[in-house]
Design a binder for these strands. Structure first.
Length: 195
DNA sequence: GGACGTTTCTATG
DNA sequence: CATAGAAACGTCC
């Protein structure tokens, strides 16, 4: 059907974003921002481990920008995307609403996961939803637990606000990167979470 | 099969 | 009311 042969672009580029809360790592594919990792340093004030790094990146992704791109167009897009990502992340960490998000590459997810992630994007800053509400929103009212799984698999936390999903009683629920982060992000948005 | 970032529904005191 | 199973869902190990 396509006359143009689409050359697969497995290229991934990782770029860092320094913030007051640590260094985040953004990974871009040819389609846009593909993942955002929390700082690997421990966060929090209490002893013990709190907050761990996100899923490890593919080896190819760790080479960084210099190893890339033979593709100039990609390189140009990258600068723009990364500027937008940086701004959006910093806004989010400050509890403000990001005016603009970079293009998001959610293609790594299954149908259900992508549905969940898109639903998450519609939750405004300072608002929350329950796992069951999300389940209803994607048309799978009974797949509540699967929604929890999809939230946990969210490759772009903070910008895709999985932290705004709480249990139906207002409890925190879980957070892959550590509940400390979830609490922090919610607090920055002015959300009081019941104990 | 088992374990999850849950929720509801059905018993029981 | 409080508490205790159990079932439902999708994905990963």
């Amino acid at each position: 059907v396509n006359e143009i042969v689409m050359k697969p672009n497995p290229t991934l580029v990782t770029l860092r974003i320094g913030t007051r809360d640590g260094v985040f790592v953004a990974t871009y594919s040819g389609k846009g921002l593909a993942s955002l990792e929390f700082p690997s340093e421990r966060v929090g004030t209490r002893r013990g481990r709190v907050g761990r790094a996100g899923t490890p990146l593919p080896a190819a992704a760790r080479r960084g920008l210099r190893a890339l791109p033979s593709n100039l167009k990609f390189g140009a897009s990258l600068r723009r995307w990364h500027a937008v990502t940086t701004k959006a992340l910093k806004a989010a960490l400050a509890g403000r609403v990001a005016k603009l998000l970079p293009p998001l590459d959610l293609s790594s997810g299954t149908a259900l996961q992508q549905g969940v992630w898109k639903a998450l994007l519609k939750i405004g800053a300072g608002k929350t939803r329950s796992y069951s509400e999300i389940a209803r929103l994607i048309g799978r009212p009974k797949a509540v637990r699967a929604v929890g799984g999809a939230c946990g698999a969210n490759p772009i936390p903070v910008l895709v606000p999985c932290h705004r999903v709480l249990t139906v009683n207002g409890g925190l629920g879980g957070f892959s990167a550590g509940l400390k982060w979830k609490r922090l992000l919610l607090a920055r948005e002015g959300v009081e979470v019941g104990g």
